[in-house]
Write a protein that binds this DNA or RNA. Structure first.
Lengths: 367, 367
DNA sequence: GAGGCGACTCGAATCGATTCGATCGCGCTT
DNA sequence: AAGCGCGATCGAATCGATTCGAGTCGCCTC
């Protein structure tokens, strides 16, 4: 029994009460056709009397073929997306642009890839899972998604929906909003090199789908799927080929702290004089760890981040970081979606990060 | 023509190719019924060959009567919701809880109320507006909504959808997650009184739908519709009945600064010795303004906020504020939705704010 | 006064899937 | 060997609205 309440009125009921046909009633509501004003009023009155709440959006969107909803696909759990300032800025930008066509934003967590028709866990859940492949959306924006989603993406394409990705691996039929992760990180690394640093460590964003934490090995690199993390790693190693890298399990302050505590446990003279963190939150964690260990920043340890979000409670530090235009990236994605929905072609957009030098980087200690 | 591409395959096509009936094909996909493994494989194979992307979510949700989407209604433009840390924490909490039933979150900006069947602006927009009343949602969470939405809310009720409100005016059939705005502010005000303050000013959140800025007059109070702002104002005036209040046009640092510059333009001796701001962001603005005017905080001006979000770049200040459990409020709303969707009754939850004393409040200057 | 034109209204097909009840075999029991 | 039970499959109704083509009716024109 799909209907929860018996006898919720339908358009047909309203039409009957108003003494018109369903088609006329529909016209009266949608306004797309000639309806006599008197008739229209009669229909609206009937609707009021029956407490009819207007055409059912489900039926409407089935018939019309459009739902007015844009999906934003993230690969973490939904709640984590709200923790990351970069995500938020990008949401913001997307919302700004699709607001122009009055579309709404559906936040979707990518489900673990499941084969076409794979068995769902519980057949009679009160609410069925909304996955990327079966959400009533008109288009999708992928945020930092990995090839793990390839199946879902091709399902979207099979549906004929426009798909735009903000960073991530290029895929057939997906418009990518690009970010110069590799080159930007290389610029940041060069900045360290110029200051005289030789021993550098890297803390990366999660590389693989399972978010493995720890030293980045060949094996981990091989299964690495995060374009963003890999590109930034590549940029850093272009300058410091032998730099050790540690993967964090997420872009959180505490993950940065944890990795840094491990990195900095070496005796001075062996331990790195600089750490390249792949996000500002990680970098803040590094600074916290240094404070705990009594290692002065930037005198004995330089720290560089990525993102350019202004992190809370960092005073007196001003993080040296690579500032990326997250809000603008979101807008570009939104604009692309709008254009594609209107039947046009959207072109690839590439964004550039700017090195903002703060007071967390300095020449390495003389010794 | 609803379909954009000609000949996108449907379940019937797949069934035909697999040599089974549509009903069997449906069973093969949904898994809710006995289907021979061989048949199932045949159907899935046919689907692959035709590039069939799975059952159309629109049709599915029409038939099933559920879409798996929970709407979160905000009254600002969507993008502004992402700017407010309290909103974000609440989103986060909601997402956490509804994640348990695999539902997704639809962010909806409340449209200006329009009468049932009111004329839409453009009949042939590429994407139709998604308003509160016609979004394919299974339930709605209202975030800080005003009576302006009364029509939309009653439409939701007519649809038989569960509706939960986080703060806001109680409405028939709407479960409210409450916050002790009035009493909490009163406690904060009493803290100032105990320190000896007499001349106090208040900076409120937007009171009315139009977000009028400026001195709070009787007229403004009369059209005030934000429960949160009104309750907090009431709490402050319970202690300082004659305190002047200024409405900000939004919860932003710059709005707080702007209001404070006006408030503090009086000669010392007449100007307030303390300012009660209705949000932390506003309070930070007050501190900024005081810095600009060379007024020492807390020596010559005490400042108290509301929210307990840790605002960036405030050092060396630790804001005295009323800490509210925003994340928990979101969770409570999410839990209530889940319970109601499962057919149960959800009970009202009330949250309490705690006064956290920082270093922005002190006794007023002796003079 | 007949023809014609418009403004309205209606019937019926359609969107694409789900689901209930009925049917059909087929193996097993007694 | 007849009867039974059960798993697999199918037909048809249904979900609730939109839309197209086909009337219907009144009024204007020549």
């Amino acid at each position: 029994m799909p209907d929860q309440d018996p006898a919720r009125p339908t358009l047909a009921d309203v039409a009957a009460r108003a003494g018109v046909s369903a088609s006329t009633a529909s016209l009266a509501f949608s306004g797309s056709g000639p309806v006599a004003e008197a008739t229209r009023q009669r229909v609206l009155a009937a609707a009021r009397e029956l407490h009819y709440a207007g055409p059912d959006p489900r039926a409407r969107s089935l018939r019309r073929g459009r739902s007015g909803i844009i999906g934003v696909v993230i690969e973490e759990r939904v709640r984590e997306a709200f923790r990351d300032p970069i995500h938020i800025a990008q949401f913001d930008g997307i919302a700004e642009e699709i607001g122009h066509i009055d579309a709404a934003l559906l936040i979707l967590a990518a489900s673990p890839a499941h084969p076409l028709g794979g068995v769902k866990a519980m057949p009679t859940e009160p609410v069925r899972p909304v996955t990327v492949e079966d959400a009533p959306i008109d288009a999708a924006v992928l945020m930092g998604c990995t090839p793990r989603l390839a199946d879902s993406v091709s399902a979207l394409r099979d549906r004929g929906l426009p798909v735009v990705a903000i960073e991530g691996f290029p895929a057939e039929g997906v418009l990518v909003i690009e970010q110069d992760n590799r080159d930007a990180t290389e610029r940041g690394a060069r900045h360290l090199r110029q200051q005289g640093h030789e021993r550098v460590a890297i803390i990366t964003l999660p590389l693989d789908a399972a978010h493995h934490r720890g030293l980045v090995t060949q094996e981990l690199l091989a299964i690495g799927s995060s374009a963003t993390a890999l590109q930034r790693l590549e940029g850093a190693r272009a300058v410091f080929p032998d730099a050790r890298a540690y993967a964090a399990a997420g872009s959180y302050v505490d993950e940065g702290r944890r990795a840094a505590l491990e990195i900095l446990s070496l005796p001075e003279g062996e331990r790195p004089t600089a750490i390249i963190a792949q996000s500002d939150l990680l970098a803040v964690g590094v600074i916290r760890a240094a404070e705990e260990l009594g290692i002065a920043v930037p005198d004995r340890l330089s720290v560089i981040g990525f993102d350019g979000v202004r992190v809370d409670g960092l005073w007196p530090y001003e993080l040296t970081t690579l500032e990326q235009p997250a809000y603008e990236k979101g807008r570009a994605a939104g604009r692309a979606i709008v254009r594609m929905l209107e039947g046009g072609e959207a072109e690839v957009v590439a964004f550039t990060s700017v090195l903002r030098v703060g007071n967390t980087t300095a020449p390495p200690p003389a010794g």
